[in-house]
């Protein structure tokens, strides 16, 4: 059982690393899907099966499809891949990579005092989440709806073809 968790975690991390190093965008999207699926498996192991389902349906399903559509519309080709390769030379990634590594190290150092784990109790079902969501956090839901509406409007506004409307 623990081996399974370890496997999922390593798939997640490796997938994420693959995402940020690919040259072709479609490959990166596929790796991201793998990462998200592995993450969903981890969520199941954490007892959050509802969140895992949402992760698969909305994240790996809907949002990634959005990425795929946009990549199709952008029509990236061979020169792009070569350019990505050019942009991925060690000179370009060394500095930021070190910075990120420092952040990672510091964060890891910071969380180490939190060790001494407690076994997680029974899983949290969709029922509990729903009660909490529409009970204490109902205003948050309203705010999220505002955010989604704003996103919808702005995406529509930005994305429409300006030349047509001139």
């Amino acid at each position: 059982m623990h081996a399974l968790a370890l496997l999922a975690a390593s798939v997640t991390v490796i997938g994420a690393i693959m995402v940020i190093t690919r040259k072709v965008a479609v490959h990166a999207v596929l790796y991201l899907v793998v990462t998200l699926l592995a993450l969903a498996a981890l969520l199941v192991m954490l007892g959050a099966s509802f969140a895992a389902m949402l992760e698969i349906i909305i994240y790996a399903g809907a949002i990634m499809v959005l990425f795929v559509f946009v990549i199709m519309m952008l029509n990236l080709g061979q020169p792009d891949s070569a350019r990505e390769k050019e942009w991925l030379r060690p000179r370009a990634w060394l500095g930021p990579g070190i910075l990120a590594a420092i952040v990672c190290a510091e964060l890891l150092y910071c969380i180490s005092p939190l060790s001494g784990s407690m076994p997680s109790l029974a899983s949290i079902t969709a029922h509990d989440v729903g009660l909490s969501l529409f009970g204490r956090y109902v205003l948050m839901v309203e705010l999220a709806s505002f955010l989604l509406l704003a996103g919808l409007v702005s995406a529509f506004h930005i994305g429409r073809n300006r030349m047509e409307n001139r």
Binding site: P96, L99, I102, V103, E106, Y109, C110
Partner: peptide, 13 residues
Amino acid sequence: IAGGLCAALAMAV
């Protein structure tokens, strides 16, 4: 931002 995060964490550590 990352640099700032780095520095803040370093101070905290």
